[in-house]
Design a binder for these strands. Structure first.
Lengths: 339, 339
DNA sequence: CTGAAAGCGCTAACAG
DNA sequence: CTGTTAGCGCTTTCAG
């Protein structure tokens, strides 16, 4: 005895109620269309009375444009992507675009569900810190859905991207740590395949080498808390304990602070400096007071929107946008030489 | 010179390529339909070759069911909702449902964008910690979109809901604090109109009154960091400083810990006890070690899915689901009387 | 098992 | 300005 029969109110119903043709109703709901003021009024009246609203699925079917943007997120335990997602949802909303969220594995790009997603005529696909496998890129190309990578790039021109200037960021951090007279540095890396990590790592090590500094230790990481926690333990328990750790993102840096302070009893900012990347809101909390290289999420999101709109008109366009940030020095790193 | 002309591959194209009718193609992609094995094979072959995928917008237009669930989120700075959102995205995905995310104001339910959302034939609308105004409820009813409230309820039967047992939770916390021999308690409230806060507050004050304890101080809050920070400052700077603070959620409790420890130099867990609600992942971090009443997000999300599926078949159904949780005692609250 | 034909709800030329 | 007429891409009878 299911009542799954939802009979929606259609433009026809409104037309009948208002004594006009169905296409008149359509026009009344189309911004630029020509309808006599009082006809429109009569239609609108009937419409609100009946609770009518145009079926956007039907509209999309005709226009070939859904006004829906797919957004794939991997790990929401990283606050930077949560902050981005919040900004993105607002920004897309204001632009009249809908956000179809789907879970994507950090590595593969969420192959299974993404294939489902492509069945909707998405205006674009945005991947937040999720890699784009070549197979997936091919699927998107076939489905004619342009892809925008956020905080990542890809070598082949399979997708446009919006990233921060990781080279400048990592070098700035290296210079900051050198200025603080740190002698034994360490780097906790991000996910192995990610362009972002490669860029940050390369610039960090490169700059230190240029300056004739001792090569830093390196610990594998994946941007997430657990691995970073283990990596920090290992670094701090080792023979020559580093006096500075640069973590490839804030999420890991906060984990590192927790370990250094609560497990090793270190005075972070004096006995050891810890620096992150992103400048998430939490970094400013007194509990962490984390020095970090800020990535301007809102500006990056604005660029994403701009790209989406551009790609709607020209799907074959390719653009790699780089947004710059800035170092925010806080208590977790010392600026001057000790003693 | 825009090339906005995305010519998608349709079932017709596949039909021509496979030498069958268009309806045969449709059948080949319909689970229960009757197609000869080799016909289907020929069709599938042509389909993959051409990169065809059924247009779900067209399908939804016919079935009257979009397989899309709208999800409104207010403040993503509250980790509990981030954790929930992550679980929800996975859970819906596995059930073959799409998640249309939209920003909703914590109070009103995001009137403007929600009205846009309703234009898609949503299977359901889930509101994460967002109130449902009566006007909005009416809109949803008219649009025949069933609403599920998460972590909130509403008096009128305008929507179904999934909540934790706030009464038991708050009483358990009160009992815990009494056992720790706290004499001067305080409560930092959640958003004023929210059912969740009312339930927690009422149970907390009620239990203490029953036990003959001194009535706690009360500070206004809104579940978010900023107000909680200010409220804590005021409480701790006051004449008779409380020796225990119960915050209506973890997000505020963590803010309270930050203030107590870093601004007032208090030893949290000895000089003052601070307790939260939700048991978000961060509560377990050594930096906070927050005692909290756990809400089982996954189970709550499972209930949301169950409700959605039930409501698809019977939109008029109404159900208020209550899921129970449990107290997790950590270092931020003392268990035994001091000294 | 398969093709032809009739829509789902809407937009977009066309004539009037 | 307005009604009529074709479809958008797909599912679904209905004959064969």
């Amino acid at each position: 005895m299911t009542i799954s029969d939802r009979s929606f109110i259609t433009a026809h119903d409104v037309a009948r109620a208002a004594g006009v043709s169905q296409s008149a109703v359509s026009r009344a709901f189309t911004p630029g269309a020509s309808v006599a003021p009082d006809t429109r009024a009569r239609i609108m009246d009937a419409a609100t009375r009946l609770g009518y609203r145009p079926n956007l699925l039907a509209r999309s079917l005709i226009s070939g444009r859904s006004n829906i943007v797919g957004v794939g997120v991997g790990d929401l335990s990283n606050p930077f992507f949560v902050e981005t997602l919040q900004l993105l949802s607002r920004t897309l909303d204001e632009a009249g675009l809908r956000l179809l969220l789907f879970p994507a594995e950090a590595q593969g790009g969420g192959e299974p569900s993404i294939n489902e997603i492509l069945h909707y005529r998405l205006d674009a696909l945005v991947l937040l810190s999720v890699g784009l496998s070549s197979g997936l890129a091919e699927e998107c190309r076939k489905a004619q859905v342009p892809v925008v990578l956020y905080n990542r790039t890809t070598q082949d021109h399979a997708a446009s991207s919006v990233i921060g200037d990781n080279g400048i960021g990592a070098r700035t951090i290296a210079a900051h740590l050198l200025a603080g007279d740190h002698r034994r540095m360490a780097f906790i890396a991000g996910a192995d395949g990610s362009s972002t990590n490669m860029q940050r790592e390369k610039a960090f090590f490169g700059y230190l080498a240029e300056q004739g500094a001792t090569a830093p230790l390196r610990a594998a990481g994946d941007y997430r808390t657990e691995v970073a926690t283990a990596a920090t333990r290992q670094l701090l328990a080792g023979q020559d304990r580093p006096d500075a750790i640069f973590c490839a993102n804030d999420n890991m840096a906060i984990a590192a602070i927790n370990v250094a302070r609560h497990e090793f009893g270190l005075d972070v900012g004096r006995e050891i400096s810890i620096v992150g990347y992103d400048d998430v809101a939490m970094a400013a909390w007194p509990a962490f007071s984390l020095t970090s290289y800020a990535q301007p999420a809102q500006r990056m999101v604005d660029e994403v929107l701009r790209l989406i709109l551009a790609l709607r008109d020209d799907p074959d366009r390719h653009e790699d946008v780089v947004v710059d940030g800035g170092l925010v020095v806080r208590g977790s790193s010392r600026t001057i030489r000790p003693r």
